[in-house]
Design a protein around this nucleic acid. Structure first.
Length: 403
DNA sequence: AGTCCACAGGAAGGGCAGGCGA
DNA sequence: TCGCCTGCCCTTCCTGTGGACT
């Protein structure tokens, strides 16, 4: 390559109009100025929360809806608008947001309380204190405030499934333990049947109001994407059909707006990388498999060695074909792999739990079957495409030092 | 109808790392 | 330093179970 051509590449790069103006507009953390297709939910939530402006405690609210249906966005949007209105009128009002799915942050009772206390300005160490002490610190931190405090607890079902509903029971009684503030809760959950398993007292007092968020349809997704892509991309850099394709793909996945935005963002990144003039439909196709692949490979990377060995056993037995295997065989294979890589095998009981975890992560599918006289066991298959299978296999092999 | 397989999955508790207060 | 507390990962022990076989 001559020096002139290199210079040309640089100058092309500098003079060419970039695809993106503001990539952040396509991320989930971005809060847009308005939230389309959620007017009803916004006004419902706003009217539930308005007592704040009269210095009164609003009802507790439970919000349900599938992933990417705008629950978190709407809640944060309404809360911040309310905060603006409260500030204008000199009314003390605080919002505390926490997501219970954040590993090692708020996925246990202790961690949630410690995290909330930290957000309220009272430091609590990540471990080491008795729980009642943490409750005391939390109440203390709360009582130093004035007016109304609203806790937004996102993915609350994940937490309660893990720690039980006693925590929520304590929350329902919180207003008896503090003097200076009035406290309300907004619980956000993907699981519609979540409150059915709750203690009746907890259910009635925590879900004084309920809001349901339906999934977006393809047309609604299209409008959301158009709005965001106008913010994110330079004019004329997105080909016709790209947005509707992203919307259609995401609509198939239960109207998940988050996925639609991911697809568009990744398609843009892929187009940028190959120096394309604009984002085209082929980039969306490539983005679709990349989004899935990245999610799965990243999830597997974070797993401990034991889980990887179990997953490898399943992959080995099914060989990526549409074949399934049985839990007993997986355990035998896993023990064999452990011997090869010098790992102490876990018990069958623990392996059974890890198989369930892999199932929840969406990497495998498993169902309990009975073979009558020959016992009851789990039938396990892979839940990933052939392309991802190959990539995952290569990753695991290199991780274990196999060739 | 009763038996029996090969597990699933609940309950209890052990061992460990790590923080706090005395 | 010690005793006590926590979460986390794991084992041990146990009961439950769908359906083929007798």
């Amino acid at each position: 390559m001559t020096q002139t051509t290199i210079q040309q590449i640089f100058s092309n790069y500098m003079t060419k109009q970039p695809l993106f103006i503001n990539k952040k507009a396509l991320t989930t953390s971005y809060t847009p100025e308005n939230v389309p297709h959620r007017d009803e939910q916004i006004s419902q939530l706003a009217s539930i929360l308005t007592p704040v402006l009269k210095r009164e405690r609003p009802s507790n609210v439970f919000i349900y809806g599938p992933t990417g249906s705008g629950k978190t966005l709407v809640t944060q949007y309404v809360a911040s608008e309310l905060k603006g209105a409260a500030e204008k009128n000199g009314i003390p009002f605080h919002i505390v947001y926490v997501n219970c799915k954040m590993k090692r942050v708020a996925d246990t009772e202790y961690r949630l309380l410690a995290h909330l206390s930290n957000l309220l300005g009272k430091e609590v160490p990540p471990t080491g204190l008795p729980t009642d002490q943490v409750y005391k610190t939390f109440f203390g931190a709360l009582d130093e405030r004035e007016g109304v405090v609203i806790f937004i607890i996102d993915e609350i079902d994940a937490l309660i499934k893990k720690v039980g509903d006693e925590l929520l029971y304590n929350f329902t009684r919180i207003n008896q333990d503090v003097k200076n503030v009035k406290v309300s809760f907004i619980g956000i959950s993907n699981d519609l049947g979540f409150t059915e398993n709750l203690d009746a007292r907890v259910r009635s007092s925590l879900s004084e109001e309920e809001l349901i968020f339906p999934p977006y349809n393809a047309l609604q997704l299209q409008r959301i994407l158009t709005e965001r892509s106008n913010l994110a991309f330079n004019k004329g850099k997105v080909a016709d059909g790209v947005i509707s394709k992203c919307a259609a793909l995401a609509a198939q996945e239960h109207g998940d707006a988050r996925r639609a935005l991911d697809l568009l963002r990744v398609a843009g990144e892929l187009a940028e990388r190959e120096n394309a003039q604009m984002v085209e439909e082929k980039h969306v196709d490539a983005a679709e498999s990349k989004v899935d692949m990245d999610r799965i490979i990243e999830t597997v990377k974070m797993q401990p060695k034991q889980s990887k060995a179990i997953l490898y056993s399943i992959i080995y037995l099914t060989r990526g074909e549409e074949k399934t295997c049985l839990s007993g065989d997986v355990y035998d294979e896993y023990v064999r792999i452990c011997k090869i890589i010098g790992l102490k095998p876990l018990t069958q009981r623990r392996v059974s739990d890890i198989i369930s975890e892999l199932d929840i992560m969406g990497i495998i599918t498993s169902k309990v079957i009975s073979k009558g006289r020959y016992g009851r066991m789990r039938d396990i298959g892979l839940a990933i495409s052939a392309e991802i299978y190959q990539k995952l296999l290569n990753f695991l092999k290199s991780d274990f030092g196999f060739d």
